[in-house]
């Protein structure tokens, strides 16, 4: 039983860390700020959650505190991404030329 948990924990750890790696890769490869926020902050959120789950399997006694960290990240991470994206858009950071439509720009003009 314990060894089964250990194997599951190990798998979750490696899977989570792989998502972290993909997030970092996305951060380097994506063409503009908005896409970088997408690739960077979200792949890493899932990566961290999986890693926390893996640690919880290895250390069942820590589950509650790990759950608290996970919940906290789940609530705060999207907030910081949104605030960052909004700040970028309000400061007129242009999306990459590949962007096909920007309805926010057309409808709001110079307002806000």
């Amino acid at each position: 039983m314990t060894s089964l948990l250990a194997v599951l924990g190990g798998l979750l750890l490696v899977a989570g860390a792989s998502f972290l790696l993909l997030g970092g890769l996305g951060l380097v490869r994506m063409p503009d700020v908005y896409n970088r926020i997408q690739a960077g902050t979200k792949a890493t959120t899932l990566g961290t959650l999986l890693t926390l789950a893996g640690v919880a399997c290895l250390h069942p006694g820590w589950t509650m505190k790990l759950l608290l960290i996970g919940l906290f990240l789940l609530f705060t991470n999207p907030l910081s991404s949104q605030v960052l994206a909004r700040a970028a858009h309000r400061s007129k950071v242009a999306p990459t030329a590949a962007t096909e439509v920007d309805l926010l720009d057309e409808t709001k003009g110079d307002g806000a």
Binding site: K42, T45, F75, P78, Q82
Partner: peptide, 15 residues
């Protein structure tokens, strides 16, 4: 809703 949209990658609430 905005948070959920942001956390599912591919979509990010800007405003």
């Amino acid at each position: 809703l905005a948070n959920s949209i942001t956390l599912t990658p591919g979509t990010l609430t800007v405003e």
